[in-house]
């Protein structure tokens, strides 16, 4: 696994966002590099929800931040509406920003503790010059209502709200500028189960209402399964398997995807629980294994996996792309 190449890009249809060979590296002192993302390619069609799963350290959060340019990008391109986000700078970049918004993992820390939430939500209008006017105020209030926050509470500050409410406020802030793409980085993992469902429902509602395209990052496969149309499985900065959600969950081909599915407390019926016993620790992204990056833990690894990195290829003509030398063909 841990495949390279842009075989994961779909050949037909217009894509809203196309990421090609994206690599991100961070210096970690003593001239060493942490390979956070290595040659990641995928595409997202308009109105689609792409779920991105993987263990911590697989680069999924780095990917989110790279797409909206909160990180330095080493190489690769991010095509959005005919422009390459990876090379935009200064004001040009600033002007695309409202189109791609983000929901963060920690709902409370994503709101400024010293500002009233009305102003937090209206920040987008303040930045883009629509600060005054009844329209702006009505727009903010309408949005507050639609995410389920009473506009009367607008003068309160973040710490006076619960985690779930803070996440709603964060969603309202992101939606104010009418974005096309909403990147959700573990939006529900800090929330209680009962609140999690409310926020997931809200995201689905907002997606339909505002015609959003979602990138949904989560370590929780059940959550992703519920919300995503397509799934991308990542491991150590590489793509393992990407495709239609149903195909990934019902016919997982990659040993790592199978291991993930087998490890959840109520495992999927399609995989054997024993497959969840992938041994060993996640290797360090500073010194990733040669060949397939999953070879140190893969139960199916053969000689070739240690020598040659698998390329991503399409499975027949299905929406299912895979990077593995020894896939599980059932």
């Amino acid at each position: 696994m841990a495949g390279s190449g842009d075989g994961s890009l779909r050949s037909e249809g217009d894509m809203l966002l196309t990421v090609r060979h994206l690599s991100v590296e961070f210096p970690v002192g003593r001239k060493r590099l942490l390979y956070a993302l290595s040659g990641v390619s995928f595409d997202v069609a308009e109105g689609e929800t792409l779920g991105i799963v993987g263990e911590s350290g697989c680069g999924k959060s780095t990917l989110a931040k790279s797409i909206i340019r909160l990180n330095q990008i080493k190489s690769g391109s991010i095509e959005y509406q005919g422009r390459n986000l990876a090379t935009l700078r200064g004001d040009e970049l600033r002007r695309v920003r409202p189109d791609l918004q983000m929901i963060f993992q920690d709902p409370i820390s994503s709101l400024n503790p010293r500002r009233k939430i009305r102003n937090v939500i209206a920040e987008g209008l303040a930045i883009w010059g629509d600060r005054q006017g009844v329209w702006a105020r009505n727009h903010v209030e309408e949005l507050m209502v639609s995410v389920g926050i009473d506009p009367k509470l607008g003068d309160r500050r973040a710490h006076q709200f619960s985690g779930g409410q803070c996440q709603r406020i964060g969603i309202a802030r992101a939606l104010l500028l009418d974005p096309k793409v909403l990147i959700c980085d573990e939006p529900v993992s800090a929330l209680d189960v009962s609140v999690q469902a409310q926020v997931l429902n809200l995201l689905e509602d907002m997606k339909i209402r505002y015609g959003l395209t979602l990138l949904f990052i989560s370590h929780d496969l059940c959550v992703v399964r519920n919300i995503a149309d397509r799934i991308m499985v990542m491991y150590l900065g590489k793509v393992c398997e990407i495709g239609d959600a149903k195909a990934i969950f019902e016919h997982p081909k990659h040993p790592y995807t199978r291991a993930l599915l087998a490890a959840i407390p109520e495992p999927a019926p399609t995989v054997e629980v024993a497959e969840g016993d992938i041994s060993g620790e996640l290797p360090s992204p500073i010194d990733p294994p040669q060949g397939c990056r999953f070879n140190t833990r893969c139960p199916r690894a053969t000689e070739i996996c240690f020598i040659e990195e698998p390329l991503i290829t399409q499975l027949g003509d299905q929406d299912h792309y895979l990077a593995c030398h020894n896939p599980v063909i059932s």
Partner: peptide, 22 residues
């Protein structure tokens, strides 16, 4: 490095605004 500063950047705020408002 907190998320609320990142959120302001994602919204397209200039450095000056992030420094003064956030």
């Amino acid at each position: 490095e907190r998320e609320f500063v990142q959120a302001a950047r994602v919204l397209g705020a200039r450095h000056f605004r992030i420094i003064t408002r956030e």
